[in-house]
């Protein structure tokens, strides 16, 4: 099967800052999650794929054609950029209508396509309002509308859930899954693993400009889960809590914090540890002020996976 998107030896840097390096990747139909910490190169990859940037070395083709300065391709491609940008003085309906007309729809068809796109993201009733009056989340949904209004075969979404309220997160995730079910190609970038997990099993891990791993999310999840997690707990009696925790099967080590009111626990079974933690605290009658996990960000996981 011919891939929809194909990158070969793809590299891009800005001055002496590396964007992406030597990427070989083929993406076919369905949903692919592009996962990596901030600055990993996800946006650079998507911007090259959307014809916003030129590769420095290598090639990237969509539907077998190079993308930069190839306007014909944009009938088949939809791109939702990550940055919060819009023609603030325009009304949302006017903005979407402009794009609909530039996509080649005229008159009633353009109006119908615009209305459908705005309706899909729940902004139809706000179409007459200037964009400058929109909240961040509404502008994010408007960007999504701008990328789907022409029913593209290849849809690329750069952090599409950023700033969106919980209800719309669920709806957007469902919309993306529906696109995937229709056999279209959807590429979604995020630095939040659960967001990607909710959409697809197929992920590409990108880190420091390189493809770090590619494949089924469960395999990646396994790697991540085997990473010893650190959990910080603040409580008035850290020694009593430590006594209780070291007896648990899920705790690898306990360290006291310099403030005398906190401790850091290392566990190899994060989920089971959290399940038992509440029970242990309740049984010992201890008071806990705060529980945080510094490992809950993707950067920490990547650092672990690459052996830093």
């Amino acid at each position: 099967m011919t891939p929809v998107l194909k990158a070969e030896k793809l590299s891009k840097w800005y001055g002496n800052i590396l964007g992406i390096s030597d990427i070989h990747l083929e993406i076919g139909s369905g949903i692919t999650g592009l996962l990596g910490p901030n600055g990993a190169g996800k946006s650079t990859f998507l911007k090259i794929a959307a014809g916003q940037l030129k590769p420095k070395i290598g090639t990237l083709t969509a539907f077998g054609e190079e993308v930069f300065n190839n306007p014909r391709l944009f009938r088949r491609i939809g791109f939702c950029p990550e940055h919060d940008s819009a023609y603030m003085e325009m009304k949302a309906g006017e903005f979407i209508m402009l794009l609909a007309r530039l996509h080649g729809y005229a008159g009633a068809e353009a109006a119908e396509k615009s209305a459908k796109a705005l309706d899909t993201v729940g902004l139809l009733d706000n179409g007459d309002r200037p964009i400058k009056g929109y909240s961040f989340g509404m502008r994010q949904r408007l960007r999504l509308a701008s990328s789907i209004l022409h029913d593209p075969e290849l849809l690329m979404l750069d952090e599409p859930l950023r700033g969106v309220d919980p209800l719309w997160r669920i709806r957007i995730i469902e919309l993306i899954r529906e696109y995937g079910r229709q056999g279209r190609t959807v590429i979604v970038s995020s630095h939040i693993l659960p967001e990607i997990e909710a959409m697809t099993n197929e992920i590409v891990l990108i880190h420091q400009g390189k493809i770090f791993a590619k494949g089924d999310i469960h395999r990646i999840r396994g790697l991540i889960d085997s990473h010893p997690h650190q959990i910080s707990i603040r409580c008035p009696q850290p020694r009593r809590l430590a006594e209780t925790l070291v007896a648990s099967d899920f705790v690898l080590s306990v360290e006291f914090g310099p403030d005398g009111r906190s401790l850091t626990v290392k566990t190899g079974q994060r989920d089971l540890f959290f399940e038992s933690l509440m029970r242990l605290i309740a049984e010992a009658g201890l008071e806990v002020e705060e529980i945080t996990s510094p490992d809950d960000n993707l950067q920490a996981v990547f650092d672990y996976l690459i052996g830093k």
């Binding site: 959307a50 014809g51 916003q52 300065n69 306007p71 014909r72 391709l73 944009f74 009938r75 491609i77 939809g78 791109f79 950029p81 940055h83 940008s85 819009a86 023609y87 603030m88 903005f95 794009l99 530039l102 996509h103 080649g104 701008s146």
Partner: peptide, 15 residues
Amino acid sequence: DNKTLVYLTTVPVRR
């Protein structure tokens, strides 16, 4: 400045 160029360069119209 407004980062809006992307909207005009991702439509099937010549630059």
